[in-house]
Design a protein around this nucleic acid. Structure first.
Lengths: 244, 244
DNA sequence: GTCAAGGCTTTGTAATGACATATTGACGTC
DNA sequence: GACGTCAATATGTCATTACAAAGCCTTGAC
């Protein structure tokens, strides 16, 4: 049967979101086990004192996350597999702290420079525009994990006064009211060069996981271009795909 | 200004989908250029003779794809960046043919076997259950690109009678009426072993891109477990992330 | 001249009602 | 007993309406 769902109409949190949160929690906590069918939308709406579209919207958000599956004429079921964390528009720092780790970051470089042609093209700037060039080494449990090189247009943000060894880059973006909306990223592999090998305590020529990302603010302005390399024995990307 | 949008109410295609398709086409064709604002929802609904929720649903699907951005109090704009293909629930074969390539596939192995403990756990079977073990080498333009190892429960499908050198695995799934709904994949990197190096015409120890995927049918049944390695100079994963 | 308040525009959230369509299972007929 | 039909069930699609909240711009006061 169902966990007791309740909604708080005085809360500023949208009703559909409250329902989605509770359902998600019930699934993660094991109250709802895989292949369980949840009550049909009409009944659920009546039970909660909500309208069907609202309940539908709540269910839809979980379907998008790959936690529920709808079948017309049948019902809605809990997906029979543990849900791993999706690749989201988050930084490595976010991911690690959320996983209960304690990342340690060393800022290797923080310069103002003029954008070269390739960087300017990625960030959709005119060549020579002033940009911040940032290079950081992130470790977890004493092990170097990632070498991160980022370029941010000076017009977007001032990085002079922030201590990026204690604050994640994306966290700082959020603090400045900068909302990332879209990002493109490419994941590949390469051979470690001498510089990378030394910093990551790998041998030269060792395989590394690479990620290049361009992030956009509200879809209008390129805000950040990052080129990262990871130690594959300590890090990998996990993605949940949802079809249809 | 707007392209002339029209809907066909006699079509079995949902109205919201028709609108979404036309908007997407207009964006890809360059009729709507980045940073263009599309008409507000109320006006658009009136213009099309549709209700606002329907128009909203159409816009939402494009927002989910990362092609549009909504801003409350402002309007809806076209995202200012080319959209690359998202990592979807598709096979390598699908991706390549859609990109205009002509993949060539060699089936290295196709066996019935009993699932070992690890495989059985991934596919949520009892140990020793009969499975198909498939190993394929895929090339493009004469260059070996990927070495793919897949395991499929015999209970799911019969692979005896199909020629997997001409038909993609996922394409065959679809032909059998098997709809994949959810998949988890992990992307990493590794060092090429002797076997992999020889088949991919790389040197032993060269960096390779790896992907492991488990796919589920309607959320209820694990259908496929795949472990692939790619040559990183010829292949990488591209993902479009949408925030909020 | 500057800053604050308020109004306008536009999207966000929600309720209600209706009909369409896919699936399953039961019933009845051949 | 096998097969087809039909009804029950649940999600899919769509219309209409209303109010809330956020952003932008104008207006007005100091």
């Amino acid at each position: 049967m169902h966990p007791p769902l309740r909604v708080d109409r005085s809360s500023p949190v949208p009703l559909y979101f409250q329902v989605a949160e509770q359902l998600e929690h019930a699934i993660r906590a094991g109250v709802l086990v895989p292949a369980d069918k949840i009550a049909n939308e009409v009944a659920l709406a009546h039970e909660l004192g909500l309208s069907r579209p609202t309940v539908r919207q709540a269910i839809q958000t979980l379907v998008d996350k790959g936690m529920l599956v709808r079948k017309r004429g049948v019902g809605t079921q809990v997906v029979k597999s543990r849900i791993r964390r999706t690749v989201e528009l988050t930084s490595l720092n976010d991911d690690l702290t959320r996983a209960g780790q304690e990342p340690h970051t060393v800022v290797l470089r923080l310069d103002r420079a003029a954008a070269d042609a390739a960087t300017a093209a990625e960030l959709q700037l005119e060549a020579g525009a002033p940009v911040w060039q940032l290079e950081r080494l992130r470790s977890v449990a004493g092990q170097p994990l990632a070498l991160m090189s980022n370029t941010i247009p000076c017009a977007v943000l001032d990085l002079e006064s922030v201590d990026l060894s204690t604050v994640g880059l994306y966290e700082y973006f959020r603090r400045c009211g900068l909302h990332l909306r879209v990002a493109h990223q490419r994941i590949g592999a390469c051979r470690a060069g001498a510089h990378e090998a030394k910093l990551l305590t790998e041998r030269k020529g060792a395989p590394l996981l690479t990620m290049q990302r361009t992030a956009y603010d509200d879809g209008s302005r390129a805000v950040e271009w990052g080129s990262h390399v990871y130690r594959p024995d300590l890090y990998s990307f996990e993605i949940t795909l949802v079809g249809r």
